[in-house]
């Protein structure tokens, strides 16, 4: 699914090296936590995985395609296979909840009838069907987070990236949210969650990618009982 070989990344403007010598492979259907202290390069690595930025060094392979050999036009189709949940949600404030969630489907050129059906179904799944005509600023942080997740998964992505998805949520909602991710993973979606919430990492016990000073230090796995419990629930 994803293979990073000797990946380095620096911003053109500042020339500062954010990531260097990153090597890892994520298999299809896997579930990983990306962790590390603030400023360690988590968001930059997520941006590379979401194809929002291109590495300045190394070879990146996604969905079996070497990114450096692809044309810019080919990346649009690959991005449609990736769902991203941003730390700050990035909901479009002028659009209704329905239209926010429908956005990836509109981009894919899905028919209006399908959009109506899929979005209604998904909003029901995240418990926001009755808020579908509301604007994002009228929702609570937790509700907005669920809208952001619904938008990220509506296109049935092969890869789901979430940057600090529980950052603005209380423990209970955070736990329910992680349940949604478990369910998606069980349906075959590869998931990477960037977080420095040690509690969640410990409780769910998925393999970890640990970043420090722009370098990937280790990849560890655990099998915490709570993860097993959640798997049984869903």
């Amino acid at each position: 699914m994803i293979k990073f070989e000797n990946i380095g990344f620096k911003y053109k403007e500042s020339g500062e090296e954010i990531l260097h010598d990153i090597n890892f492979t994520l298999e299809s259907g896997s579930y990983h936590f990306l962790t590390g202290p603030s400023g360690s390069g988590k968001t930059s690595l997520m941006n590379l995985m979401s194809l929002g930025n291109m590495p300045t060094e190394g070879q990146m392979t996604m969905f079996g395609k070497k990114i450096s050999s692809l044309k810019r036009e080919d990346l649009f189709e690959l991005r449609q296979r990736i769902g991203v949940v941003f730390q700050d949600f990035r909901l479009l404030k002028h659009l209704s909840i329905f239209d926010n969630v429908a956005l990836p489907l509109r981009i894919m050129g899905e028919s209006d009838e399908n959009i109506k059906n899929y979005v209604s179904e998904l909003l029901d799944w995240v418990g926001l069907e009755k808020h579908k005509n509301n604007l994002p600023p009228t929702l609570s942080g937790g509700q907005q987070q669920r809208v952001a997740i619904a938008r990220a998964v509506i296109g049935r992505p092969k890869l789901l990236l979430a940057d600090e998805p529980t950052g603005n949520l209380d423990d209970e909602i955070g736990f329910r949210l992680m349940g949604l991710f478990e369910q998606l993973n069980r349906m075959g979606t590869t998931i990477v969650i960037a977080t420095h919430n040690a509690n969640i990492i410990e409780q769910f016990g998925h393999p970890r990618l640990i970043l420090g000073n722009g370098k990937l230090h280790s990849s560890q796995s655990s099998n915490a009982p709570i993860a097993q419990k959640i798997r049984n629930v869903f």
């Binding site: 979401s50 194809l51 929002g52 036009e73 649009f76 189709e77 690959l78 991005r79 449609q80 296979r81 990736i82 991203v84 941003f86 990035r90 479009l92 956005l103 990836p104 981009i107 894919m108 296109g155």
Partner: peptide
């Protein structure tokens, strides 16, 4: 720019 980048991230051409 932020919204344009968001659409781009979703695969908008």
């Amino acid at each position: 720019q932020k919204e344009v980048c968001l659409l781009h991230a979703m695969g908008a051409t």
